[in-house]
Amino acid sequence: MIDQFETERILARPIRENELPAFLDVIRSNRFFLQVTEGCPDYPLSKLEKDWKEANENPDECMLGLFEKKTETAAGILTYLKRNPRDGFPWIGFLIFRRDLHGQGLGREVTEHFLDLARRRFGWTSVRLGVLLGNHPAQAAWTRLGFRKVEMKELFNLPEDHAGERVVWVMERELISG
């Protein structure tokens, strides 16, 4: 697994359980994202704890905390699957930054560094991710990072109380060796 790395401004490493509240604040700072994904501007700590535990129990999944190097404060979260059992592709599951850090190029910095590591360490030749239809800012950001829309899919197995969107664009990026 790629369980830690550094870029110019970010340190990525596994999140410790006592750090989950700080990363909950990262998620909650993105009210538009929460409205699209959850259907409301809230995200309970119990949901983050559940996702964190599942990531730690699955040998093909990893959840990394992204920390600002200068201040060592929680800046974002990156999750990935080495191989999605549904389609056999590697997937970026989640990449989010604190709202006040948007527009500073951190998404590009982390994504490019991580994908280069994954290509070299795992031999990835492409990677996929899903973006909800209503999340136009994320679609634009991933497109700028070289991802292209390959198919539209409806999400299944969501909790009964899920009020967010249910249809995603599957986006894919080819990884060039070199």
Rank of each mutant, 00 (worst) to 15 (best):
P44C: 10
A138I: 10
I77A: 11
A118D: 06
E54F: 03
W91G: 04
W142E: 04
Y80T: 03
R144N: 13
F33W: 12
L129C: 09
D60I: 01
L101Q: 11
F94T: 13
F67T: 02
W124D: 05
R144Y: 05
F122C: 12
L95D: 02
K47E: 14
T143C: 01
L133I: 13
L117R: 11
T111C: 12
G146K: 05
R16T: 11
F33S: 06
P41I: 06
A75S: 14
R28A: 03
L64T: 03
V110T: 09
W52D: 02
K47F: 05
L101N: 07
I92P: 01
A140M: 12
F97H: 03
A55L: 02
T143K: 15
P14T: 07
T71D: 14
L45T: 01
L48K: 09
G76D: 08
R121C: 00
T79K: 15
L64N: 04
N58P: 01
F97V: 03
L78V: 05
G105K: 08
A140T: 11
W124F: 15
K149G: 00
I77Q: 10
V131A: 13
W52Y: 14
R13H: 04
E68R: 13
L129K: 01
Q35C: 03
R99A: 12
A12D: 08
L11Q: 14
G103A: 07
P44V: 12
R16H: 12
F33A: 07
R99H: 15
L129Q: 01
L101Y: 11
Y43K: 07
S126M: 10
A74H: 06
Y43N: 09
A74F: 03
L20Q: 08
I96G: 02
L115C: 11
G123P: 12
R119T: 15
R128W: 01
M63H: 03
E38D: 08
W124V: 02
G130E: 08
E72G: 01
G65F: 07
L132H: 10
L106W: 09
C40A: 13
P85G: 05
L66H: 05
W124P: 07
T73Y: 01
R148G: 09
L132D: 01
R108W: 06
T143L: 00
K53E: 14
V131F: 05
H113P: 00
L45Y: 13
L20V: 10
V131C: 05
Y43T: 09
E49F: 02
L132Y: 14
M63P: 05
G103F: 03
G134D: 11
D116I: 03
A74I: 07
G103W: 06
A22F: 14
H113W: 00
R121D: 04
S29W: 06
V131T: 07
R99G: 00
L106Y: 15
S46R: 12
R31G: 00
L34D: 04
G39S: 06
K82C: 11
K70M: 07
G123R: 12
P90N: 04
W142G: 04
K53A: 12
P21A: 11
G88W: 09
A22H: 15
A12P: 07
R86S: 14
L34V: 06
L11W: 11
R119K: 14
A140H: 12
G107Y: 11
K69S: 04
R120G: 02
K53D: 05
A22P: 00
E17C: 02
T125L: 11
E72D: 15
E49V: 14
D87R: 08
T111R: 00
R120C: 02
G39F: 10
H102K: 07
F94Q: 13
K82D: 07
N58T: 13
I96V: 15
